[in-house]
Design a protein around this nucleic acid. Structure first.
Lengths: 156, 156
DNA sequence: AAACCTTTTTAGCGTCGGCTAACTTTTGTA
DNA sequence: TACAAAAGTTAGCCGACGCTAAAAAGGTTT
């Protein structure tokens, strides 16, 4: 039939050429590299804003990992220039860290609200947004923003 | 203005309780554990279907990694019961592997077509789908399927 | 001040998934 | 048949990120 829902251009029958395929997976790997860092930075920013300070204990509790894991990550974030910290003291974001936290938070909010305006329930939207957040390109984020704006007039 | 896009109920002002927050991150970590395995199994399934066989060279080229990396992963997939393989021979999927490949492929297709029907260009949709695929819950997949079905009548 | 508890840090283990280098097997060709 | 190229395997390095256990620093209570 020529009137099938799958048009030739949108059918997923054939594999992309190997190089393009490889680039897709490389993009995913790249995203994974920065993903955890962004999650930590975003969480630290949230804690600073909501609790006034970001302590390792709270980060550990919210990330669901041990404090030792957090300590090592904080050291890494410091080396990368995202946070400043002195031994046995709270953690603060550098300018770069603050920028990343804001970026992440915005992206997170766009995805979360998009999912909700699609009709996904809140709990599911929160979980999915957390995972999807780092894999959504700027272009797709724009589309999501538009969609949410036009489908959310009555409030979501 | 009181008619801002952010309604109080959908605003993301406060952090979730720590335990819930931790569960969200745990879900992401869990997804990461199986993600790469699913990607390999899905790719092997695609190669079997499209090329008739799945060879380590082709897997490496398409994943964008070295053959040594593929070899170790194949051994792992074998131990996990997803593939069968004999030394220096092509790779085949077990029943479990085939089931996972089909699942992954379906999920991948749903996300990809959803993005396209949203209006995301093909190249972007492909990249984003690859990353998002593993972080989309069944519930959200259902919503995406519905959306694509109702917004894709003219083809796209 | 001493004792105690919490918080943070450090040391060290294990797994995973990239990599290179070197080797073996298969395959294709002279 | 012999040799070269391609494909597959193995060994071992490295960084990341979980973990436990134990030490060090900070804060509180007596």
């Amino acid at each position: 039939m020529t009137s099938e829902p799958d048009t030739p251009s949108s059918a997923d029958d054939s594999l992309p050429p190997p190089e393009q395929h490889a680039r897709q997976y490389a993009a995913v790997r790249d995203a994974h590299e920065t993903e955890l860092i962004e999650d930590y930075v975003e969480l630290i920013g949230d804690l600073l804003d909501h609790a006034g300070e970001a302590r390792a204990t709270d980060i550990a509790a919210r990330m669901g990992v041990r404090q030792a894991t957090v300590a090592r990550m904080i050291r890494r974030l410091n080396e990368l220039g995202f946070v400043t910290n002195e031994p046995y003291r709270a953690i603060f974001l550098t300018e770069r860290g603050r920028a990343m936290a804001n970026e992440s938070r915005k992206r997170h909010a766009v995805v979360l609200q998009f999912l909700r305006s699609l009709g996904v329930d809140d709990a599911t939207a929160r979980i999915d947004a957390e995972g999807m957040e780092h894999h959504v390109s700027e272009k797709t984020l724009d589309v999501m923003r538009d969609f949410t704006a036009t489908h959310n007039k009555g409030g979501g």
